[in-house]
């Protein structure tokens, strides 16, 4: 039914070339992510400049403990992700699966903590429409949360494929690219945390 040139009939690919292409593609994609958040960061600085007291007041309502906890959680998850990439490059199957699972677990922890943070706030009537600080707060952390979810499905996919033994010394590009994405998600949080919670 399907002829050459359709979805399931690709030209034969050189795996090394494909790997190089994917890596460059991922770096470019990360650049678009930075710009996506860049707009929000710009808005943060503009509004903080115009309304310093609103931002001080809003920031004091945030739970620094939970924010800090989530920062730690993400740093650990970045570490385990890096270990996973290393394991994939060396072809260590068990270590790869273990580290991917740990990363996924940390990501889940992040979401749970976030839930405990958002829940009480919303029930106390502190909503995205409260003032411009909370608009920025919910928008940035919400968009970041969305990225955590996307990252989790990415890692879940990697885990499923790792369990089937798809990754080894000759084929680890997928894990590497997933790692790049996850590190970006962490880095964005590393910037968000001090900006929203601490200063």
């Amino acid at each position: 039914m399907s002829e050459p040139g359709t979805f399931f009939h690709l030209h034969e690919e050189d795996p090394v070339e494909a790997y190089e292409n994917f890596k460059l593609g991922m770096w470019i994609f990360l650049a678009t992510e930075v710009l996506l958040f860049g707009g929000l960061f710009a808005a943060y600085f503009i509004f903080k400049f115009i309304w310093p007291t609103v931002f001080e007041d809003g920031s004091s309502h945030l739970n620094k403990f939970m924010g800090g906890l989530n920062t730690l959680v993400l740093i650990f998850s970045s570490f385990s992700m890096a270990m996973a990439v290393d394991a994939a490059q060396r072809g260590q199957q068990k270590k790869l699966v273990r580290n991917l699972a740990i990363t996924l677990f940390f990501a889940l922890c992040f979401i749970v903590v976030k839930g405990f943070e958002w829940g009480p706030k919303l029930s106390h009537g502190i909503t995205p429409g409260s003032d411009v600080f909370f608009s920025v707060y919910y928008m940035t952390t919400g968009l970041h949360l969305l990225h955590v979810l996307v990252g989790m499905s990415f890692i879940g996919l990697l885990l499923a494929r790792a369990l089937k033994g798809r990754y080894h010394e000759e084929n680890f590009g997928g894990v590497e690219i997933g790692g790049l994405y996850w590190h970006l998600v962490d880095i964005i949080w590393i910037f968000l945390f001090p900006l929203l919670y601490l200063i």
Binding site: T32, L35, F37, G38, G39, L40
Partner: peptide, 8 residues
């Protein structure tokens, strides 16, 4: 570089 900004 520009499209993500209109996206947000």
């Amino acid at each position: 570089l520009a499209t993500p900004v209109v996206g947000i």
